[in-house]
C-alpha cells in the first residue's frame, strides 16, 4: 500500500452568488498544509462552512480564489487516491445494491479484475469493518452505524492515500460513535493514509487527531492550529482521562463558544 499524500490549501476563498447583491462569503483566505500520513481535524461552529472547505479540498467544488494541491499537483476535480466519506451515509450508499456491491462500486472503474476477484478483494474490507456476514443484505436493512461501516469499507476499498471525512460520525448514537472512532483509528494506524476530518464535536477532534485546526464562523478563516500531542495508540476509556485531553477540550470548547469580537 502506498503511503499517505500531502494536501496543501493556499489562500483558498469561496463566495456564493458572486457579483450579485446577495453575495455571501463562505471561506476567507484559508491556508493549511496537511502532512503525509497525518490525522488532521478541522473544528468549527455549526454553519461555518466546514463542508464547503472539505468539498473544495476534494475537488468536488471549485474555489473562488486560491489553490489546492495534492502531493504538489493542483486539484481541479476529484483526484486519484482521494476518497471522501460523506456525513449522510444513507445518501451515499446505493440503495439498490447489496452491501458487497456497494463496496465494489469503489473499484469498478478500474476494470482490471474479474467479477469474482473484485468481490473477493472487496470482501476483505467488509471483514475489516466486521460486516462480512452482511455482504448480501441491502444497506437499508442495516442500522445506521452498520451503514456507516459499509461506507468506510467502501472508502478503504478504493485504497485512498488521503481520506476526507465530512462529520461522518455525527448521525449515530454515542456508543456507536465510539466504536467507529476505534475502528477508524485502527484502520488509519494500519494503513497510514492521510486523514482530514471536519467536525463540530470537540471530543471527537481531540480523540482522533494529531493536529487540530480551528475555524471561525463565516466568513471562515483558520484561527489557529494546535498539536494534540496525545500518545498513540489511543484508548476510548483512558485517553479522555489524560490531563492534556481535558486541557485541549476545555480550551477548544471555550474558543468555539465564546463571542469572537477579535475574530471579525
Amino acid at each position: 500500500m502506498q503511503d499517505g499524500c500531502t494536501l496543501a490549501l493556499d489562500g483558498v476563498t469561496k463566495s456564493f452568488s458572486q457579483g450579485r447583491p446577495e453575495e455571501m462569503m463562505a471561506l476567507a483566505d484559508i491556508s493549511l498544509d496537511v502532512a503525509a500520513g497525518e490525522f488532521l481535524t478541522v473544528v468549527g461552529p455549526s454553519g461555518c462552512g466546514k463542508s464547503t472547505f472539505l468539498q473544495i479540498a476534494a475537488g468536488l467544488m471549485e474555489a473562488t480564489g486560491g489553490a489546492v494541491a495534492l502531493d504538489g499537483r493542483p486539484v481541479d476535480g476529484p483526484p486519484g487516491g482521494l476518497v471522501y466519506l460523506f456525513q449522510q451515509y444513507t445518501r451515499s450508499l446505493l440503495p439498490w445494491r447489496t452491501v458487497i456491491r456497494n463496496v465494489e462500486f469503489a473499484v469498478e472503474g478500474r476494470g482490471r479484475a474479474s467479477r469474482r476477484e473484485r468481490r473477493e478483494f472487496c470482501m476483505e474490507f467488509l471483514e475489516m469493518v466486521g460486516l462480512a456476514d452482511f455482504a448480501d443484505r441491502y444497506p437499508w436493512q442495516l442500522s445506521g452505524g452498520m451503514q456507516q461501516r459499509v461506507a468506510i469499507a467502501r472508502a478503504l476499498a478504493a485504497e485512498p492515500r488521503i481520506l476526507l471525512l465530512d462529520e461522518p460520525f455525527s448521525s449515530v448514537d454515542a456508543l456507536t460513535r465510539m466504536e467507529l472512532h476505534d475502528m477508524i483509528l485502527k484502520l488509519w494506524e494500519d494503513r497510514r493514509f492521510t486523514a482530514l476530518l471536519v467536525t463540530h464535536d470537540v471530543d471527537e477532534a481531540v480523540m482522533l487527531s494529531d493536529r487540530i485546526a480551528v475555524l471561525s464562523s463565516r466568513p471562515s478563516r483558520i484561527v489557529e492550529t494546535i498539536e494534540t500531542g496525545l500518545p498513540r495508540p489511543r484508548d476510548r476509556i483512558t485517553t479522555p482521562e489524560l490531563p492534556r485531553f481535558l486541557e485541549l477540550r476545555h480550551y477548544l470548547l471555550e474558543s468555539l463558544t465564546k463571542p469572537k469580537d477579535h475574530a471579525a
Partner: peptide
Amino acid sequence: TLLDTARTFRHGRARSILAVILP
C-alpha cells in the same frame, strides 16, 4: 451525494449514468 460519491471514485460520465443516475 450519490453523484459526488461517484465522482470521488472517479467514475466517468457513462458509468455514472448507468450505475447511479438510471437506477
